[in-house]
Design a protein around this nucleic acid. Structure first.
Lengths: 302, 302
DNA sequence: CACTTGCCACCTAGGTGACAAGAT
DNA sequence: ATCTTGTCACCTAGGTGGCAAGTG
């Protein structure tokens, strides 16, 4: 789907790139949320496949980047509640560097080491969910999946993929933007969105897997890698976990939902994050963002 | 993609179901078009794969309908010009019975015979192009393809597929609707759309192919049926034609475009068709069409 | 040595008509 | 006899990590 957004995401959408990731941000119902529009202030987001994400995170998640673009696994998927059912929303993602470091992997110690300062930052892009814009009722009806999002290391990519530097670490970020139909809505655009970061979705961008245990977990849990599976009892257990992780995760999350802090995302509105990055001014992403979004899944040729 | 259209297609969108198909309708620039809005009065639509459509039409096109839904082949695809690049449009299709007859195929004479009056009409549905709504610039940028459209004979279908009666003949119809942002736009909604019918896209709905030559042409030209191809020289010629039909068709159409009447669609605005159906009142499709469109490709479970 | 690229076999997911069996 | 349904082998299209070769 092609969508053009003019002035939807104006002044208020400030990108806090290159900031040390910090959590949690503003807590729900806290005083910092009082400045948010009613259409976004009650929005709750729940990460799907959270247990699988955590399995990867414990090993140190790696995501392949290729010239032509590679999907993420696990896929970033969320369940959303608390939207105004009749209000229109745009949903999007971006990726911010966790730090300004470059890493390398040492096989003999099976660990990541700092290998210097970060390379020059890759062009910052945002990935609009292809169903955007849509009313809150649609977004809340079922899981919202970013399975069409692809990662690339090609700085000149023109397929709308997310450009990342290999051997750098990133934090996915999820944004809910209320499409304010009132005139001059850009004047208080900062009120019309909220953002969410799930720490367990951090990952290292790589061109080839470094940690063999990550490879094995990918093979065990990604259906498209089934060709590489062996039939060890242990492996079959992993298969089972992966294939049942949806229900498995939901059972856990039903209990945790909105109760344990660890299962809550850090709702870092940009305006909230900014003070946490002293000495680093958040960058305004253009006065007005005139962006023609190309759905990666559609491809440029379609 | 899920889209809700409220009041977009109000009073003016009258369906002239069960009318004898007639062509041409209002010709471009004719006096009947003077009442159309400027956003739609200049719209031109060109059928893609026209040569292939005509090959099928000469044999008597058949389209399979199944309980779970079957795609059309050839796919209904068009190139559009003459839109207002910055105006928003909704594109959609529907299917009208060519007549009120039921048919049967006689294998010994290889022809279709009338087998009585039509069965009770299947529930009338419209298929919104999943990219709707989008600005004219997007629609005109490349071929618009209805490849996610599926045909079914299941009267109780809840997947949003087009419901047709088997052994009945249908004419696909294509509608361009300008999304008028002005208040009370429904009062003159009839001005904000135009419709196109390509006679060579008529077909008989069937649950199994009747005419063996249709089967052979499907096998020869549909990539998904490659498994049934033989390697006769004659067959290979058909393969070549099919695989090159895109360029082959375009070359023809470039010459014909807006010059020969046969390559022009009959631009039958509903208001124009109505007088051609004496004794059959066009049906108003609800005062306001509150329709939740489910893209067939996404499926209900997504 | 550290990292990247291109190609490959092997999957998932789903679109074909053939065909046998079922329905009326 | 006529028409429909479900299953099947065989495709297209594209997402996997392995691996050899390439780059610096």
């Amino acid at each position: 789907m092609y969508v053009e957004f003019y002035c939807l995401l104006s002044l208020g959408l400030l990108l806090s790139q290159n900031c040390e990731f910090s959590l949690p941000g503003c807590t729900d119902g806290g005083p910092l949320f009082s400045s948010k529009a009613p259409q976004v202030c009650g929005v709750r987001v729940q990460l799907e496949m959270q247990a699988l994400w955590r399995q990867f995170d414990q090993l140190g998640t790696e995501m392949i980047v290729t010239k032509s673009g590679r999907r993420m696994f696990p896929t970033f998927q969320v369940k959303i509640s608390g939207m105004d059912p009749s209000a229109e929303y745009v949903l999007l993602m971006d990726f911010i560097p966790v730090d300004d470091k470059r890493y390398r992997y040492t096989f003999h110690s099976s660990s990541w080491l700092v290998a210097g300062r970060a390379d020059v930052a890759a062009p910052s892009r945002m990935h609009f969910h292809p169903d955007s814009p849509a009313p809150g009722s649609q977004w809340m009806k079922q899981t919202v999946s970013f399975d069409s999002l692809k990662l690339t290391n090609n700085l000149l990519d023109d397929n709308g993929h997310m450009i990342l530097n290999s051997m750098h670490r990133y934090q996915p970020r999820f944004h809910v933007v209320y499409v304010d139909p009132t005139p001059n809505s850009h004047l208080n655009a900062y009120r019309n969105f909220c953002s969410f970061s799930f720490p367990e979705t951090r990952f290292m961008a790589v061109t080839a897997y470094q940690n063999h245990r990550i490879t094995q977990l990918k093979i065990a849990s990604n259906p498209f890698a089934k060709g590489f599976r062996t039939s060890d009892p242990q492996e079959e257990m992993k298969d089972w976990k992966a294939e049942n992780s949806m229900n498995w995760t939901e059972n856990r999350e039903d209990a945790d939902y909105c109760s344990l802090p660890v299962s809550l995302p850090s709702a870092d509105a940009f305006g909230c994050l900014a003070p946490r990055c002293p000495g680093k001014e958040p960058q305004a992403c253009g006065q007005f963002i005139h962006r023609r979004v190309i759905n990666a899944a559609s491809g440029a040729g379609r």
